[in-house]
Amino acid sequence: MTQARITGSVRVGAVVGRPIGHSLSPVIHNAWIEALGLDAAYVAFAPADDDGFRALIDAGRAGCLAGLNVTAPFKELAYQLADEASPTARASGSANLLVFSEGRLSADSTDGVGLLRGLDEQAPKLELAGRPVVLLGAGGAARAAAAALAGAGAEVRIVNRTHDRAVALAEEIGGGVSAWTDREAALRGATLLVNALSAPPDLDVATLEAGATVMDMTYRPLTTPLLAAARARGLTAVDGLSMLIGQAGPSFAAIFGVPAPDLDVRPLCLRRLGEAG
């Protein structure tokens, strides 16, 4: 491990959202920066509103930032402001990664990669191709999840309180994605349930098939009521921290221009979660 340093050539990355104080992204990225000894830093921004986010984008275009990770509520706006977007970002209609180069802005979405990596790590026996998957929510994170799951060959059933948003998302992604109004019916036969809602869902895991997998995108708390109930029933549970770390690797490479090092940051994240209570 070499000593990280900050000079006049420092490369600055950041995570942006509102609120943002809970984010573990600075813990992850700065640990990797230190391990590689990069002349770099990774910070956090919490713009008050969309205009504040646009001002941050302007600063990036002016050369003040190398790239941004984007979280709620700015993922869809991030996609809209980009000059170019990856196929993954276009498929989901949102972006959690923005990279600046000579005044231009490129958008990508690594949330789907993170979701699939999290499932592969904590539910390695799960098969998605041709299997029904229920996705709760239709926001930015759900968009990326739906695109990734559909890309893996799953039959994605979106359930959202505002059904029109679920319909719109299903129509945007297409390819085996559908919107359902009856959550109980959607859960029948599902091999995987993914919660992309910010609030805990009012859901009885007893309605899930034996052997199903349950994933919660949130990682505060790490063991959510949904995951606790799933484990109590003997189901496989996948936490949101695995997804966060999974999406961070490709983000780090895009922002700082080098692959993330072979350093397990999960213990660092768990320690920070414990410190925060």
Rank of each mutant, 00 (worst) to 15 (best):
residue 46 A to Y: 08
residue 217 M to A: 07
residue 8 G to E: 03
residue 271 R to Q: 15
residue 256 F to R: 05
residue 225 P to V: 07
residue 79 Y to H: 15
residue 256 F to L: 01
residue 19 P to A: 02
residue 244 L to W: 03
residue 38 L to Q: 03
residue 5 R to H: 15
residue 195 N to V: 04
residue 238 V to A: 13
residue 184 E to P: 10
residue 95 A to L: 02
residue 201 P to I: 00
residue 116 L to I: 11
residue 49 D to N: 13
residue 223 T to M: 12
residue 247 Q to C: 01
residue 47 P to C: 05
residue 188 R to N: 12
residue 27 V to A: 08
residue 145 A to D: 04
residue 24 L to G: 11
residue 193 L to V: 07
residue 49 D to T: 07
residue 29 H to M: 07
residue 144 A to S: 15
residue 90 R to G: 01
residue 267 P to G: 11
residue 129 A to W: 13
residue 158 I to L: 11
residue 52 G to W: 06
residue 171 E to K: 14
residue 80 Q to Y: 01
residue 185 A to W: 09
residue 25 S to N: 04
residue 32 W to I: 05
residue 226 L to T: 10
residue 212 A to F: 08
residue 60 G to S: 09
residue 64 C to W: 14
residue 119 L to R: 10
residue 127 E to S: 14
residue 139 G to L: 01
residue 202 D to C: 02
residue 229 A to H: 13
residue 276 A to R: 14
residue 160 N to T: 09
residue 61 R to T: 10
residue 86 S to M: 00
residue 13 G to W: 00
residue 80 Q to V: 06
residue 138 A to E: 00
residue 151 G to T: 12
residue 270 L to C: 13
residue 226 L to N: 13
residue 74 F to P: 05
residue 184 E to R: 15
residue 21 G to F: 00
residue 52 G to I: 04
residue 147 A to C: 06
residue 9 S to V: 00
residue 102 E to D: 15
residue 260 A to N: 08
residue 262 D to S: 15
residue 49 D to Q: 07
residue 136 L to H: 09
residue 263 L to R: 12
residue 180 W to F: 14
residue 170 A to R: 09
residue 213 T to H: 14
residue 266 R to Q: 12
residue 212 A to C: 08
residue 95 A to Y: 04
residue 209 E to R: 15
residue 71 T to W: 02
residue 161 R to I: 03
residue 159 V to P: 06
residue 30 N to S: 05
residue 17 G to V: 03
residue 257 G to C: 02
residue 195 N to E: 00
residue 203 L to P: 02
residue 105 L to T: 08
residue 28 I to A: 03
residue 222 L to I: 10
residue 189 G to I: 10
residue 154 A to C: 14
residue 252 F to W: 11
residue 8 G to C: 02
residue 43 V to R: 13
residue 96 N to G: 01
residue 66 A to W: 04
residue 174 G to T: 10
residue 249 G to Y: 10
residue 75 K to H: 00
residue 16 V to H: 03
residue 221 P to C: 08
residue 146 A to I: 03
residue 124 P to T: 05
residue 221 P to N: 12
residue 59 A to L: 13
residue 199 A to D: 01
